[in-house]
Amino acid sequence: MKKQPGSVWVIAEQIDCRILDVSLQLIAHARKLAIELETSVEAVLLGDKMNEQTRQLFAAGADRVYLGNAPDLAHYQPEIYTEIIVKLAKERQPEIVLIGSTSMGRELAPLVAARLGTGLTAHCIDLVLDENKILESIIPAYGGLLSIICPEKRPQMATIAAGVFPKPEMDENRTGEIIALEVPDDIPRRIQTLEIIREKPQGVSFESAPIVVAGGAGAGDLEGWRKIADLAETLNAALGATRPAVDEGWAELETMVGQSGKIVSPELYIGVGLSGELQHMVGIVGAKVMVAINNDAKSPVFEQVDYGVVDDCREFVPVLINKIKEYQEKLVTC
């Protein structure tokens, strides 16, 4: 007799009692995988006073929610969160566990995976099932795509960034079972979160921006980077960065666009001083118009955009900003 596969899990994440979009996106995708696997979708939600929010998880496609509700769980606490999830996974034997590539997810996922002795794929840009119903995690590398599988160990675990999967259609009529989780009392508590500070992000947020300007190593230095930032400001665009630009210290890690950073879906994308590395380009999903400015005519970025300008971005961008301003002023006066 064929063994009934375990369910597809999503470790949902909440910040100040608000469920993150990525968790809902993952539940909707888990639904698709679960249909193919003929199994159910289950979400794990840890927080405090979260009963009401479980409805969203059901609306997005969960059949069952494991809910840990306790003051101790209000914020991410690595030891307690890991312990609860590991214990539950050992009991329930899920087939697949998906976690958002957030700062919590990126720490919690490997803690859980190592404890369960299983594999974990990072920052996937797609998740599909192969002919043997094994989860294939798609990851960009070396100018191509790698499929990574975890053939033997279970659960199969993966982290996925917000925006990789679309916003789910919420079915407010869906309901499901809630199973309450106990908070174990034998936690070592060698890590204590004393304070969580979240500042309001500066600039235009990626989620809502119709235009994304992204800059790369071609900026040359901080001064060059500021010119790209000026371009973004002129266009009222969100400003993203490639990994090299983050590594240079010009841009914050949180503004990194790409596989291990943000996934964005703007109408217009302008890549400045970047070479079109796949790890960055997979971060731009479904842009209608793409533009690149790069001084190297042979740069692969020019194979991935609609319009290209071959020029030193440090020289070109200020000229472009002036022209845009002229155009914008003309619009106002008309």
Binding site: N295, D296, A297, K298, V310, D312
Partner: peptide, 12 residues
């Protein structure tokens, strides 16, 4: 030489 375009191609 890789940046400079002449006749539609880099002069390199």
């Amino acid at each position: 030489a890789n940046e400079r375009i002449l006749y539609g191609k880099p002069i390199s």
